[in-house]
Design a protein around this nucleic acid. Structure first.
Lengths: 178, 178
DNA sequence: CAGTACGTTCAGAATATTCTAAACGCTCTG
DNA sequence: CAGAGCGTTTAGAATATTCTGAACGTACTG
């Protein structure tokens, strides 16, 4: 591997490792493919990155899932070819929906469960009141995030105003009088 | 711990574990504190979550760093008290700046290095040309992300348009005639 | 100023993740 | 239809992360 590619591969690997989306090896695989004029096979990638073929196989699947890499099969050959995709907006949409929004919904689901549980608590009326209020505050914020991320992934601007005061934003405004 | 808190703690722990920001224990600590009417000490948290005090000590520091938990010391006591913060927008700003944007800048720094390296490559003129173009495409996208995240953290809307066609957005538009 | 009540650090144990090499199964080929 | 050339699965090795308990430092307390 030439010096330029080495620097790019190392740097992108390090960035990926702290991304919370890809691991280091996935960052390296993508970086390698991104600087190639043509597609590479599994074996070529494994050799270049000094990793086992099985490890590349497993990790490249994640890259294909995020639409960061395209898999193709040329002619009648049964050898897969891989190349980097360059539609980063598409990747970001995917991450928004399948990672961030999915995570937000985990929280919303937990809030649902918690609200159901607190309704069954016997006695301790003001504690129940307190928990209900707190959980409502969390729900307002995460509901706003869910809506905001959803809109963003569909190409609409994400306005932080809804996150600053989610409780206010969640409540329908009184109509201004004529 | 009562049933309601248990459900909330477990759910938030699971969500945190896949967040890429907090680990499971940090999610559990925050959840426990969030349903408490008053602050708790390190030892109380450790007992409730069945973890060693040292482990709580280390992990709660991260929560304080993200402004998810406030540390206070009441009166002349030397016992720290912790309570959940509820300004989630502040937390999001912190994450935007110190996590996402920092990560984006890692990529931009790698691109800088790569461009410097490719300039020193001898021969292979069309390969150099190819790499330069590709890296420019990546830079345009990540520069747009950096700008967008920065604006968002300062309360301005984040418009996906700049990410859809970053190369176009980066170039100043020709003035319309007339 | 010795004793106690804390928070933190650290070495090593427990656990989870990443990686390899061998085994497997599929598909094309002669 | 046997063999070669693939990608994938899997058991276990290598490595990284998380967790504990003991040791330590500091600041109140009697």
């Amino acid at each position: 591997m030439d010096r330029t590619t080495g620097i790019f591969v190392d740097g992108m690997g390090a960035a990926a490792a702290t991304s919370g989306i890809l691991n280091q090896l996935q960052g390296r695989i993508f970086a390698l493919l991104y600087l190639q004029p043509g597609p590479l096979s599994l074996d070529e990638i494994a050799t270049e990155l000094e990793q086992s073929k099985s490890n590349i196989s497993v990790n490249i699947r994640g890259l294909v899932d995020w639409h960061l890499v395209r898999r193709s099969r040329v002619g009648g050959s049964r050898r897969d070819q891989y190349e980097a995709a360059a539609d980063f907006w598409r990747v970001m949409q995917e991450i928004m929906e399948r990672r961030f929004r999915w995570n937000v919904r985990q929280v919303l689901a937990t809030i649902d469960e918690t609200e159901r549980a607190v309704e069954e608590e016997r006695g301790r009326r003001d504690w129940v009141q307190f928990v209900t209020t707190r959980v409502a505050g969390l729900r307002a914020f995460f509901a706003a995030m869910d809506a905001g991320f959803g809109a963003f992934a569909h190409g609409k601007p994400l306005d932080p105003a809804a996150l600053k005061h989610p409780l206010l934003a969640a409540v329908p405004r009184p109509r201004p009088r004529g």
